[in-house]
Write a protein that binds this DNA or RNA. Structure first.
Lengths: 337, 337
DNA sequence: CTGAAAGCGCTTACAG
DNA sequence: CTGAAAGCGCTTACAG
């Protein structure tokens, strides 16, 4: 439909081979004068390279496909920014595909759309693949890597936070603030990704190191959603057996916060809250939420880098505590509680 | 690199032509027995069609490229869901490209990435293109359509809400609640998209119809961001010359809400607030925000439909008022204010 | 420095 | 119903 190198060849009198060399800048294979003529013609005719043809003949692609849940993982933006940044530096292109909200067919469609064309590689942002889809991916012979979730399966490479450390650190922080009855809410410990299990383990370890035996009702699992936060708070109930809670995501934290408000439980006066993620959402609610902040941008950047350079190992990105005022320091006077 | 139809031809003894016909399901051109053999072989060998080759030869594509700002336009998710839904129904594929945060180079990169391969068409989600990039798009000879913003330029087709109506309706609503000093905050009236100007015009019209002359300081423009909300509230100031404000986006509304809290102005007791958009963000803040709710899903669905069916006209999607408690009804007693 | 030719993986008239 | 052949837009040894 559009202008092709053949048109430019005709226009300039050069062969398509020469035109191709100029346009794909094979330095050393053409003179400056030729280049000037060809480029001028290309500009004049409004030439746009058909990368599909290039990819077909070169058998490689500069496209990185990013697969992402359509559900609200509000941290995907900084991850994608990181990916874009690295991709730009390496002269790669990024396309994004929505894999639905944990829906088999949508996942499959996204995967197929990606795999049906030449690709540099695939990055999956916290997409918990169904077994068959994972199989599809594994057999596709295209490099891939997960971002923000981790797995036991040694075939599945990832860049993520150290989720054990997240659980451990959050708990230690609350302990240091004088809390001893500490809850964990909204993490998924059923998923094939072991993110939730790791956080739980880190949490348990920190408690045990401090001679605290985690109570059954301190832990309210969930799927990292806003609703999981609401439900968790309902389950803790008015009498709540905890003085502080670690929430599995910012949305869980906000859900919990709002449900607490509905139950006339004030944060941080009656209940402390530290959330995992630390996205902008923490700053737009009242009170702002203290968080274990993940470095999502870095996750994306590193994920792209490892994919591009064909690294085989996993990587962790840094985490930090961002204090914003949803955690109260317990004093001796509180101990009667 | 992968398995090709040539491999299947070799495996089955059929010609590549026949294999191609079976695999692309050209009914009437093959027998059921042949199909069974070919399909079995394809499955066995793990064949995956190379769509780049197909697109090259057929000169058409089933790919819809969606271009989107990386900045937090939190309503893009439902739009994309709508697009996906329609695309699935029409057996099209969707890829998404990030165009940065109003950055010329990023826009250009996204556009080029899209235009450098066969494409069914392009959908742009509230991307305010720089002039040169718009030119690039216009000359590309690929159908395109904007979603959620509208233009005067008759070359630029769109599916959006009726923004004049939004401004008008929001104002009428507040008038009905007894407000007469009504502000408008965080809308962009400089942009090449005339969304902001339309909202302003609708707002002004509603006031004038009620014999109210809009005061200069009732209007605080901005770029629809959280920060624009903070700034707007600072500008209204402690003495605030308005009793109710219409905010240009949910983020503006939340910014304004939080800044008001900081200034000890209580919403809705001291100040009423109605926001434009009505995304989930309205429901996770306290108080929840009353909104003019846009039908983003429908925007996406219709945008894709119009693109696919090559419609030429523009379209508006429906809007509605969602009352959530950030607007107070003024009584006679308030009138002394 | 340049061109003729083969070929990437597919589709589709054309002929049988 | 099937196959041989041409061709989509590009790249790249090979020969000059």
């Amino acid at each position: 439909m559009g202008v092709t190198i053949k048109d430019i060849a005709k226009e300039t009198g050069f062969s398509v081979a020469t035109v191709s060399r100029v346009l794909s800048n094979k330095v050393g294979f053409f003179s400056q004068e030729t280049a000037a003529i060809v480029n001028a013609a290309a500009l004049k005719l409004g030439y746009k390279k058909n990368m599909a043809a290039t990819e077909l003949v070169t058998q490689k692609s500069s496209i990185i496909a990013v697969i992402i849940n359509s559900t609200k993982t509000n941290f995907s933006d900084p991850i994608i920014e990181g990916i874009q940044q690295k991709a730009n530096e390496a002269d790669k292109r990024v396309i994004i595909l929505y894999a639905g909200d944990h829906d088999f067919r949508s996942q499959q469609r996204a995967l197929t759309t990606a795999l049906e064309r030449p690709l540099m590689g695939i990055l999956l942002l916290s997409v918990d693949l169904f077994a068959d889809n994972l199989q599809l991916l594994k057999t596709a012979n295209v490099p891939f890597r997960f971002i923000s979730i981790s797995f036991q399966d040694p075939d599945l490479k990832y860049v993520a936070s150290d989720d054990w450390q997240i659980g451990y650190l959050a708990t230690k922080y609350l302990l240091k603030k004088g809390h001893r009855k500490i809850g964990l809410a909204g993490v998924d410990i059923e998923s094939s990704a072991h993110t939730g299990k790791l956080r739980l383990a880190g949490y348990q370890r920190a408690l045990i190191e401090n001679n605290i035996t985690p109570q059954k009702d301190w832990i309210q699992t969930g799927n990292y959603s806003y609703k999981a936060g609401l439900n968790a708070m309902k389950n803790y109930g008015q009498q709540k057996n905890v003085s502080a809670i670690i929430t599995g995501s910012d949305l869980v934290g906000i859900g919990l916060l709002n449900q607490a408000a509905k139950m006339n439980i004030s944060i941080p006066n009656d209940l402390s809250l530290i959330t995992i993620d630390g996205t902008y959402l923490c700053r737009i609610v009242q009170p702002q939420l203290t968080s274990i902040t993940q470095n999502f941008y870095s996750m994306g950047y590193l994920g792209a880098e490892y994919l591009i350079s064909n690294q085989r190992q996993n990587a962790f990105t840094d985490i930090q505590i961002s204090e914003r005022g949803s955690v109260r320091k317990l004093t001796a006077a509180d101990s009667e509680n």
